[in-house]
Nucleic acid binder design. Structure first.
Lengths: 141, 141
DNA sequence: CTAATTGCAAAAGCTTTGCAGCGCA
DNA sequence: TGCGCTGCAAAGCTTTTGCAATTAG
């Protein structure tokens, strides 16, 4: 509990009830990627009185503070997820909207090399695979 | 001229003036990635009377027909580019907003492998590197 | 001739912002 | 107490949609 307290302070943000609650929701939700609306709904269900505008503002602040990462997977609302320091990319199932995370050192290296060859350095990247379940015989998952 | 005519017919779309003009603009513009607004402005400058709603509708139809590819690089308006069949990914310069295209067979292969390992098959993907110019001594571009 | 297409304006979806009041340090 | 934070409602930006008029085939 004073755990989130610390996180907020470290981020240079005043510890307020909306910020605490939003951070708790992001950390405890079984769904890792949430829209502002998702967070807002979760707050409502928890009986918290927080305005949707505050949710947007807080999520933006959390992003600036490096507490969360914002994704624009496609059109539709942006999704936020806790930034646990572990960089990873995403697969989005086109059928279930499920989000699967993965990481490839190999791809990262190649990206670096390509940017370098073009005279650029990478400040960030976004890799999203749109996928659907294999109908294969020997599906390993 | 009857070239675009053909393309539209092949796509199963009636050949109308708005569709012809929009296709021409997308094909001839020096800037390869254009928003609906960009296309609309280009039409206005060319003295064409086309509603912005039509631009959105036509671009959507073009996308369904495989004539153009739609990108949601970040927030902000979607960008469209002619689909010339050559698949490629993008680097977006965070300073100039410039869009650079690249392609890596290597990355594609790894993506396939990863999706496969998770029991999925890829239906599409989006890879965007956010980059800035190197301050390096021996910049090769 | 008839179904498809268009333009307009209204509305929808997501997000940001101005402002007055409230609350943390 | 003072400045930052919040809630509300209004507005902003991008995109979609209903409808009547127009047009391609």
């Amino acid at each position: 509990m004073s755990d989130e307290n610390q996180e907020l302070r470290r981020a240079g943000l005043k510890v307020t009830l909306p910020r605490l609650k939003i951070l708790q929701i992001l950390e405890s939700s079984p769904v890792r990627h949430m829209s502002a609306e998702d967070v807002y709904r979760a707050l409502m269900e928890a009986g918290e009185e927080v305005g949707i505008a505050t949710v947007y503002r807080v999520l933006t602040q959390f992003e600036s503070a490096g507490l969360v990462v914002r994704h624009n997977f496609d059109s539709g609302p942006a999704l936020y997820e806790i930034d646990d320091g572990e960089h990873h990319d995403h697969m989005v199932c086109v059928e279930t909207r499920e989000v699967i995370e993965f990481h490839s050192e190999e791809i990262e290296r190649i990206q670096q090399r390509i940017a370098d060859e073009h005279g650029y350095e990478i400040t960030g990247h976004s890799l999203v695979l749109h996928v659907k379940p294999k109908k294969d015989s020997k599906t390993k998952n």
